[in-house]
Simulated assay, not measured.
Amino acid sequence: MAKPFMEAVSPIKRAAIHGVELYYEHYENPGRDTLVCVHGFLSSAFSFRKLIPLLRNHYDIIAVDLPPFGQSEKSRTFVYTYANLAKLLIGLLEKLNISRAALVGHSMGGQISLSASLLKPELFSKIVLLCSSGYLKRSHPSIIFGTHIPCFDLYLKYWLSKDGVLKNLLNVVHDRTLIDQEMIDGYEKPFTDRQIFKAMTRFIRHREGDLDSEDLKRVQNPALLIWGEEDRVVPVSVGERLHRDLPDSILYSLKDTGHLVPEERPEFVSERIFEFIQ
């Protein structure tokens, strides 16, 4: 593929959508198909840092920080359901006057992409699912009850800081030599804002379960599924089940690859996306 295009204007943007301030990066390429990159749980647009340069010459690319993650607003009034997050994506595209786009969702971002495609199928051409979450139920009632207890956010902060970013990265990456200080700093940065833990408390409380088989069978957009065979977060068996439930889908599984496919295999992913979208 061609060398990445050097951005003359900063891609960093912000927009108020449905009362929430969204941070997003827009790598503008007028006249090209639009790709919308949707990150996973505890992540941000940073997770697409290796993939975007490989696709930059070919597509108009939008990478969104889903609230309350990344640099988007840590709202304490927003209802953090997947359906509402999907509506934020749709609202952003409508605000930007984009009438057609393909979705690229990693992990939790895959579920939100699927929800968006069900809410407004005519807006989306195709869906790329990278180790997408699937078939998860809503949090246990005891956990939902716990989110109403004062200082639950402090417990959440303790729980996340106890393991630390490095330990979490070791769990999602198969080739541990890929982990460097830039990667650690990039995934750790959003959690320096203390407000994220209060917002995440609401996220845990509000999150509905993943789409069930009947919902998935209603998805008419063609889907490309790419999975790491060493994924310890969302096993490849989930990808195989999604492949069976989605009416029009292709599945690739990669050896010696973990959950963080956009970081671990960006060249393979970009090549498959290019073939799929074209």
Rank of each mutant, 00 (worst) to 15 (best):
S44L: 02
S10T: 15
L55F: 03
A63M: 08
Q71I: 00
S10E: 12
E25M: 11
R76C: 00
E21R: 10
T34G: 10
P67L: 07
L55I: 01
R32V: 01
R56W: 03
R76Q: 13
S72P: 04
T77L: 09
F41N: 13
N29V: 02
H39E: 01
A16M: 12
Y23G: 01
I17G: 12
Y59W: 04
L42V: 08
F78S: 12
Q71E: 13
H18M: 06
S10K: 12
I62K: 03
Y27W: 06
V64G: 09
Y24W: 08
S75Y: 05
Y24S: 12
L51V: 11
Y24M: 09
Q71S: 13
L35Q: 07
A45W: 03
Y23S: 02
A16V: 14
A45H: 10
Y59R: 09
D60C: 09
F46P: 07
E25R: 13
R32Q: 14
D60Y: 03
S44V: 00
N29W: 00
H26D: 11
T34C: 14
N57T: 10
S44D: 01
D60G: 06
Y59E: 06
H58G: 14
S44C: 02
Q71V: 00
R56E: 04
I62P: 03
E28Y: 01
G70A: 10
F48K: 10
F78I: 06
P68M: 07
I17V: 14
T77H: 15
L51R: 08
E21Y: 00
E25F: 02
N57D: 12
S10D: 15
S44T: 02
I62W: 01
S47H: 01
S43D: 15
L55G: 07
A63F: 05
R56I: 06
V36F: 05
G70D: 06
L42S: 13
S47Y: 00
Q71M: 13
E25D: 10
S43C: 12
H58T: 06
